[in-house]
Simulated assay, not measured.
Amino acid sequence: MRTPYLRLTTVLGTAAASASVLVLGTAPAQADGNVFVAYNALTSPSAKTEFAQDGEILTALDMKSDSHGVAAQWRYNSSSATHSYYNGGGYAVAKNWNLSFAEGTTLQIRACLQDTSSGAPYSCGGWEYAEA
C-alpha cells in the first residue's frame, strides 16, 4: 500500500516543481551582467538602445534599412539634461560608447531616430530605467 502512495507523492512533487519553473520562469543567461534595453517604438521599432551594467557600455543599433540614423540617449534619473550619442553607420550596425558612473547610479535610456550627426533626435521611445 505504501508503493502507490510514494509513487503519487513523487509524481505530484515533480509536477509541482515543473509548474513552479513555468510560473517563475528562468532568467536569461548573461555572461556580462544586466543589459537594459529601450526601443523607439513598441511596434516595428527601428532604433534600439542598450546599456550594459557590466562595463557601462551604451549601444545604439539601427534596426531598419530606412535611410535614418539612430541615437542612444541617457540621463540621470528624471534629470532634464539629456546626453545623446549618434550612430549613422547604417542598418544592423551597432555603435558602442564606454561610459563611467558610480556603482548603483540610476539612469534612464531611450532610443531615437536621427538623420545626421548635426541633426536633432526625433521619434524617441519612452525612457527606460537602467542601473550602473
Rank of each mutant, 00 (worst) to 15 (best):
D115P: 06
Q114N: 09
E50M: 07
A19Q: 05
S65P: 00
R75K: 15
S78D: 11
E56I: 08
S80A: 07
F36A: 01
G90Q: 14
T106Y: 07
C124Q: 09
A120W: 01
M63V: 08
S123Q: 10
N96D: 15
Q30A: 13
P121S: 09
S44L: 04
Y39A: 06
E50V: 01
S79W: 03
V23K: 03
T14K: 06
A17G: 09
T59L: 11
T26L: 08
I57C: 11
S84H: 02
L24G: 12
G69C: 10
L58D: 06
G33N: 06
S123E: 10
G33W: 13
G89W: 06
S20P: 01
F51Y: 11
G13I: 04
P45L: 10
F51K: 00
A120H: 07
I109R: 07
H83L: 09
Y91E: 07
N40L: 06
G119A: 15
Q53H: 06
N87S: 09
L99E: 14
Y85E: 03
H68Y: 08
G88N: 09
Q108R: 08
Y39T: 01
S117P: 04
S118C: 04
L113F: 03
T59W: 00
V37F: 00
S44C: 06
R75C: 11
Y39N: 13
S79A: 14
L61W: 06
A52V: 05
S67P: 03
A71R: 02
